[in-house]
């Protein structure tokens, strides 16, 4: 049984906002299967009592004072936008509701 099915890859592509044509989906399904199969062994390595390490540093409580710092120049920012109008970023119509 493959580690990942073609349907799952399709679902992943949707979650990751990647518009992949069918032949690419097929291609990736094969490759992801190989990769995931070879990393799957990891699920048996660590005992339940091993704490996870999400970060190599033991730092805590890094804060900055609540002070205003200069913002960027609006024109410079919008100059890099694919489309802009009225001082705002112009984006295609949004279908989905806000989360």
């Amino acid at each position: 049984m493959p580690a990942i099915t073609r349907a799952e890859v399709e679902h992943l592509a949707r979650l990751a906002r990647l518009a992949l044509p069918d032949d690419e989906l097929e291609h990736y399904a094969g490759q992801l299967d190989v990769i995931l199969s070879s990393v799957a062994s990891i699920s048996e390595v660590a005992a339940a009592d091993v704490p996870p390490t999400s970060h190599p540093l033991p730092l805590t409580n890094v804060f900055r004072p609540d002070e205003i710092r200069p913002s960027l120049d609006t024109d410079e920012v919008l100059a890099q936008a694919p489309a802009a109008a009225d001082g705002r970023f112009r984006v295609p119509r949004i279908l989905d509701e806000e989360q």
């Binding site: 002070e67 205003i68 710092r69 200069p70 960027l72 609006t74 009225d86 001082g87």
Partner: peptide
């Protein structure tokens, strides 16, 4: 450090 002031011109409080 961008300001949170309400009602500013659009995209003037961004970094």
């Amino acid at each position: 450090g961008c300001s949170t002031e309400f009602g500013a011109e659009p995209n003037t409080q961004v970094c």
